[in-house]
């Protein structure tokens, strides 16, 4: 580790500890780190968008439009993009709706057929069991559980009839499946949050503390 790398490691360690100091109580170090994160993020994202978005795909081709006139077509999306900025004008903010409508229309047109395919049709097909095609008894049991869980959960969200009798019993089974789902999500969420802590403590112990020790004592 070079001296410069060690310096930036210390900066990162200071900012990490500043953020974690909030666990004790709100303080000035936390505020500094928080504002730094916001400012640096905005600056970084703007720079990337400029150098890998706006410049190569808009301004650079426009600058070369004398040689390639077709590049002038890029003025159309550029103009539509500028309309977005009119959101800040009270008088002309309605003009931004043209761009929003265009983006919404294209997004919906592109996404809806494949969303239905991926989220509805494929999922429905997977819930249909052919018991003759199961590779093992266990696979058959799992498929049966999926079928029962899907139907019971759907019944739970059927509100056009009071949940009594068979409907009520099925809905209660649906609640069990929903709770199991919540439990799985909670377990995964704990794992995700702990992973972030592991990442930071791993950095503090192995990169910062051990790195500093090796830099000083060799």
């Amino acid at each position: 580790m070079t001296g410069l790398e060690l310096f930036w490691t210390w900066v990162a360690a200071f900012l990490t500890l500043s953020i974690y100091s909030f666990l004790y109580k709100d303080n000035v170090f936390y505020k500094i780190a928080e504002h730094l994160v916001v400012g640096v993020s905005v600056g970084y994202i703007f720079t990337i968008n400029w150098f890998q978005g706006l410049h190569p795909y808009l301004f650079h081709p426009l600058a070369k439009s004398g040689q390639e006139p077709i590049n002038l077509l890029r003025l159309i999306p550029f103009f539509l993009g500028l309309l977005f900025l009119l959101r800040i004008s009270r008088k002309y903010n309605w003009l931004s709706r043209f761009t929003i409508a265009l983006v919404m229309g294209i997004s919906c047109g592109v996404s809806i057929p494949y969303t239905i395919e991926a989220r509805l049709i494929e999922q429905t097909k997977a819930s249909m069991i052919d018991f003759t095609q199961q590779p093992s008894i266990w696979a058959g049991i799992c498929s049966a559980i999926i079928l029962v869980g899907t139907i019971a959960t759907l019944v739970f969200f059927f509100f056009s009839k009071e949940h009594k009798g068979v409907l009520g019993g099925t809905a209660r089974v649906g609640i069990v499946f929903i709770m199991v789902g919540f439990g799985a999500s909670f377990g995964y969420t704990v794992m995700a949050r702990v992973s972030l802590l592991i990442g930071r403590l791993n950095f503090l112990i192995n990169d910062w503390a051990k790195g500093t020790y090796h830099f000083i004592f060799g």
Partner: peptide, 10 residues
């Protein structure tokens, strides 16, 4: 991420 894993299983 682990938070999203249960959504991805289907």
């Amino acid at each position: 991420t682990a938070v999203m894993a249960s959504d991805a299983y289907p």
